Each structure stands twice: as C-alpha cells, then as structure tokens.
Simulated scan of single mutants.
Amino acid sequence: MALTNLALTNLALTAETPRPRAALKDLCISFPRPDLPPLEVVSGISLDVAEGEFVAVVGPSGSGKSTILRAICGLLKPSGGQVLVDGKAVAAPPPQVGFMFQKDALLPWRTVAENIRVGAELGGTPAAEQAAQVARLIKLLRLEGFENAWPKQLSGGMRQRVSLGRLLAYRPSLMLMDEPFGALDYQTKIAMGLELLRVWEAERRSIIFVTHDIEEAVALADRVVVFSARPARILAEYKVHLPRPRHMRAMRSDPAFTELTEAIWSDLALPD
C-alpha cells in the first residue's frame, strides 16, 4: 500500500530530527514531609539534550539542579512527568549514563591507573583491553608519570582529572556532572575547564553540567539553561555561539561573552 503524504512527511521529519540523548517531559519532583505538604522542588520542566551536546544548567542554590541529575540517572523517582534516555523511560540507573560529583570519591587503596580502571571494569570493557584503554586516558588527561601514584599524593585538580578519566573509562554516552570543579581554587578550576573542553572535543559525549558559576557555564557549554528558584522552572535558554576551541581567560574580553553572562545574571535577578 502506498504511503500517504502525511506518512511521508512524518518519515522525513523523523529522519531530519535525531532522537535526543536525554529528554525531560513536564518533569515534576516533590519530597514528602511529615505533617506538612510535600516540598515541590521541580515544577514542569521539559528539556532535550542532543547527541554530543554540552548543556550547562545554572540557577540559585536549592533550585533543583542536582535533583534533576539524580532523576536522569535513575536515583530519584519523579512525582510527575517523565525522564527518557535514548528514547526509553528511566526506571532504574541506565547503563549508558555516567555521573561525576563535586567530590572526586577516588578509592584511596588504588593507584591512579587502578582508579581509572574501575570505570573500565564497571563499563564492561574486556579485561584484555583495559590496560590499553587506561593508558589512552592517562595520556589524554596528561597524567603520564603519575600512573602509580596514590590519591593522597595528588593535588585537587589532578584528583579531578583521575575522576574524569574513570568516568570516560566507563564509556557513557551521557555524562552528568554536578559542580565537578566547585571545590577547586580559581586557577585550578580554569585549568580543569580547559581539560574538560579538550577531552569533550575529542570524545564528543553528551554532557549536562550543573554549576553556580555563570562564566564557567558560558565558557564551556553549547547551551545554557537557567533555572528559577524552587520550585525549579526554566526561566531562559541561551545558545552559546562563541567559537571553539575556547580559551577561557581570553573570552572575558569578548563583548559577546560579557553580553551573554550579563543577560543570565539579569534573569536570575528577576523575581519569580
């Protein structure tokens, strides 16, 4: 039977519109409280993250940014709406999703190489291939010479590089990053941002990056999503058209960078 014009149009749209790597559909999250109404943290958020896209999420403290990440990785059940990863509803932690926290959480009894290897083991990399994978990531993250160092012997920035290596060794198609550089000093934070960009440009995984730092968000991301205060709603979204590769210190003198950061600051200053 011949396809109708409507069916042909739908096929064309499907071919032209790739399925998002992650999708939030009218997501609502509330927490029960004894003797009080539930605390509404997230209210009706809809957001798509494309394949290979770097999305930063900013907003006030307590606005549900980290809560969203927990829902995407299956650690938290929404009270309404839906979370999809690769088109499938999330009911348990999806194996293709990796999480990086603010605290590196390295295993103190494992060396740098062994900590990175944990990701390869959990990701199902065959044992015969793990050594080569770890060696590639150590080179990519510029950790040569520290393969046999213990976490306690590393600086904060180096520990975060090892943590990033462990995440990449897991080979997730979607990386969730919850203020991974928030505890670092300013210079180390800038250096780690450059490392992340360099690795992302080589690997091109989808990233959702939560941060309080608006300049960091603009410097890193393809798109910045601005959350309101609790209960979180999306106040605005901004495409970041600054050219890549990006040099974070040099961008501060770019009028487009300044204009975008000021616009986001203005959004966050507005009353809900």
Rank of each mutant, 00 (worst) to 15 (best):
A169E: 13
Y170G: 01
P172H: 00
P172M: 00
P172W: 00
S173T: 03
L174T: 07
L174K: 08
L176W: 01
L176S: 02
L176H: 02
M177G: 04
M177H: 03
D178Y: 01
D178V: 00
D178P: 02
E179D: 07
F181G: 13
F181W: 13
F181S: 13
F181T: 13
F181I: 14
G182V: 05
A183N: 15
L184E: 14
Y186A: 15
Q187P: 04
Q187V: 12
Q187F: 12
I190T: 14
I190D: 07
A191F: 11
M192V: 07
M192G: 09
M192T: 10
G193M: 08
G193C: 05
E195F: 10
E195I: 11
L196T: 05
L196K: 00
L197M: 13
L197H: 11
R198G: 00
R198N: 04
V199W: 10
V199L: 10
W200A: 05
W200S: 11
W200I: 07
E201W: 04
A202T: 06
A202I: 01
E203C: 03
E203D: 09
E203A: 05
E203L: 08
R204G: 09
R204Q: 15
R204T: 11
R205I: 14
R205F: 05
R205D: 09
S206L: 06
I207R: 04
I208S: 07
I208A: 04
I208H: 05
F209W: 14
F209S: 15
F209K: 13
V210I: 15
V210L: 11
T211E: 11
T211Y: 07
H212Y: 01
